[in-house]
Amino acid sequence: MSDAREPVTGIEVPINLKYEFTAGAALARFLSSIREGRIVGQRCPGCSSVYVPPRGSCSRCGIATEEEVEVSDRGVIESFTIVHIPLPGNPVKPPFIAANILLDGTDMACLHLVSEVPTERVVVGMRVQAVWKPREEWGYTFENIAWFKPVEGA
């Protein structure tokens, strides 16, 4: 049997991993708070570092964290990347800016989007503030913050 089709040079081999994720105690408290529009992290009893989102322990000291700390929705860009390649299933269209943002009062950056600024104007050290979605859209997700934008007048 002959076949006029082109020789095979590639194959599609998608891998789909199905997870049932349960947030631990620390993350569940964080998500319950952000549902109310508050950002709540945890402070390490050893080194006093504040983590957002909290993981329930301090990776530096290796001890459990319990004390809850509400922090600001403003911070500073610690690093960023401008993404030009679309990700399958990602509703955010490139180019977009993904940034590590160190919220005021915290000691470890969290990853979020930066928008409302031309990409060429973004710099490390830029002050940013959260842009919250309308309250009726809030859920148990960090995406209640649509993105961060430069602090006006900063």
């Binding site: 599609e12 998608p14 991993l17 199905k18 569940a28 299933g89």
Partner: peptide
């Protein structure tokens, strides 16, 4: 809080 999600890699 629990949530199911799917992580897909569209390898070619």
């Amino acid at each position: 809080l629990t949530k199911s999600f799917e992580l897909g890699y569209t390898y070619t």
